[in-house]
């Protein structure tokens, strides 16, 4: 079973990388980009076959390692 984790910065946390990307897009002539927030996608290949179990275990992984919940949100998608 595969899982995909999206890790994003919480609202209100400054994202200097996102700001630099937004600036660069503007310089390339892409207009109307109001804001850019950069995050991470982590794909996991799991031995678990039960969807609920897999989701619970990936959530634990997020809390313990994959996300820093001081500044990041995460969402788990079981594929």
């Amino acid at each position: 079973m595969k899982a995909r984790v999206h890790v994003t910065l919480k609202n209100g946390v400054l994202d200097p990388q996102g700001a630099a990307v937004a600036h660069s897009l503007g310089a390339l002539g892409f207009e109307g980009v109001n804001d850019v927030r950069q995050g991470k996608v982590i794909e996991l290949d799991l031995a678990e076959t039960d969807k609920a179990q897999a989701e619970a275990s990936v959530k634990q992984m997020c809390e313990k390692l994959l996300a820093n919940t001081v500044i990041e949100n995460y969402s788990v998608e079981i594929l």
Binding site: V13, P16, Q17
Partner: peptide, 17 residues
């Protein structure tokens, strides 16, 4: 130390990148 929870807060990418 911040990642281990012994100190609060977080060290983010430098503002000037």
């Amino acid at each position: 130390l911040t990642e281990s929870g012994l100190l609060p807060g977080v060290l983010m990418r430098n503002a000037g990148l």
